[in-house]
Computed example of a mutant assay.
Amino acid sequence: MRIGEVLVGQGDSIRAALLAIDRSGWSRAFVADSAGRLVGAVSESAIRQALLDGIGLESRLYPFMEDAGVSTKPGAGRAEVIDLMHTLGLRELPVVDQDGRLVEVHSDLAVAGPAHRGNVAVIMAGGRGSRLAPLTDHVPKPMLPVAGRPILERLVMHLVGSGITRIFISVNYLNEVIEQHFGDGRAFGCRIEYLREDEAVPLGTGGSLRLLAQQDCEITEPILVMNGDLVTAFSVGGLLEAHAGEDVVATVATTRYEHQVPFGVLEQTSGRLVRIVEKPVPSWPVNAGIYVIEPKLISEIPEGRLFLITELLDQCLKRGWPIGLWQVREHWQDIGRPAELAQARGQA
């Protein structure tokens, strides 16, 4: 459904507003000017009252138009949208761009999440986060708040909103903080179980995956694995679908790393200057800390020792097993250092 198909103009009729409400399933018809800028809304209840008062269907809706109320900007995360809608008791939340144009509408039914996915997710949340000390002296890094909500909670809500309802969290350092906050996951609309490492024997991002073999479950679908210190709204469905569409044993999500060269770069051929490129910004694809792996790879992970997931990928490559790449196009930020945390919090 395109947004233009459910907008009405100020000069339109009550009938047009009712048709827009019927097409969208919303409780309001949103009113835009000729440039698509949001100027108001007409609620179904206001229309009903007008009809009861004897106003005809062909009457102009303008006299019944109200302010559209609170809106949000494009790119707002699911957690922020849910918080805003729940706090204000909204059934719909319009999304307005910098020019005031209505580009999308979040509805209470849509943010509840899409169809269930059979994949399980594993979130790595066992690290000490020593580079963020003293903030992490008593709080594990994934539980540090960003915009009023722990990073790990944002990830859990994003997964649930994408249809994943069975989540394993790998814990070690200050595991009780995480487990007390999430419990069994019911309060977050999912089932959460814990992969508990021995604090004296950290297993790393790959080794803790081996603990899945000890769980009471049969995993047949590809497994989504991600670091627990990411602030991102990546497309879970897009990644899983990309993996399913290729003959690969794993898919690595990538993002771009840019480096500002502070000098003019000289390009040459045979000792002769060809051109000068002033302060270029080259970029490279880098590991985003998000993966999809086939269940059969779990048995390839050694038990009881430190083992990084990148080692698992290296083993696959040495055996000639193909690994796919998928680019994260949405916002992505790793929270590993104080400057990155400050940036995520809007303090930098």
Rank of each mutant, 00 (worst) to 15 (best):
Q98A: 10
N119Q: 09
E311W: 04
D216E: 15
A112T: 10
L212G: 10
G126K: 00
A147I: 02
E267N: 12
L88Q: 04
V103R: 07
P94H: 12
S71M: 00
L240S: 02
L90Q: 11
T232N: 10
R101P: 13
H243Q: 04
G126M: 02
V122F: 03
R2I: 04
L212N: 09
Y62H: 13
V39G: 03
H138D: 14
E80P: 00
E66F: 00
G185S: 01
G40H: 02
I167D: 13
K279E: 14
I167V: 15
K296P: 01
N175C: 14
R28H: 01
A50N: 05
I21Q: 03
G89C: 07
R91K: 09
L203P: 14
E179G: 06
L312S: 15
E92P: 07
F234T: 12
T254G: 10
T205D: 09
G77D: 11
D83M: 03
G289I: 09
L341G: 01
E278P: 08
I151T: 12
F263N: 04
T136N: 06
E44W: 01
D67L: 01
N227R: 01
Q98P: 03
E300Q: 11
W332H: 14
S208W: 07
T232M: 13
E218H: 11
W26C: 00
P145F: 12
I223G: 04
V6L: 05
G89Y: 03
S27N: 00
E300Y: 06
V277T: 13
Q10P: 10
L152S: 05
E241P: 06
G25A: 04
F234R: 08
L102H: 03
M1T: 09
R345V: 05
Y194G: 08
S71Q: 00
L57G: 15
D184K: 08
L84V: 11
F234Q: 08
G77R: 07
G185V: 03
A187L: 07
R210M: 14
C316N: 04
S130E: 15
L174W: 07
R305M: 10
C217I: 04
G4T: 13
L266R: 08
P140M: 05
P295I: 01
G75R: 03
N287Y: 07
F182N: 14
P94A: 14
A121V: 14
V225K: 00
A339Y: 05
V248F: 08
D184H: 07
D314M: 05
S34A: 13
L155W: 08
G245Y: 05
L297C: 14
I151G: 12
L155Q: 15
M157L: 15
I323S: 12
D67S: 10
G148N: 02
L313E: 06
D12E: 15
K73Q: 13
A50P: 08
T205Y: 09
P338Q: 06
F188H: 07
H86L: 14
G346V: 06
V96M: 05
I123H: 13
G127V: 06
P150C: 02
V328W: 06
A115P: 01
V95Y: 15
G304K: 11
L52T: 08
A112P: 06
T254M: 14
L135Y: 08
F307L: 01
S235W: 07
R2Q: 10
R329S: 15
D22L: 00
I219K: 01
P140L: 05
P280E: 04
S130Y: 11
S43T: 03
G271M: 02
R305T: 13
E246T: 11
W326I: 07
A17K: 02
G77Y: 09
L144W: 11
V6S: 05
A213S: 14
F168P: 15
G228H: 06
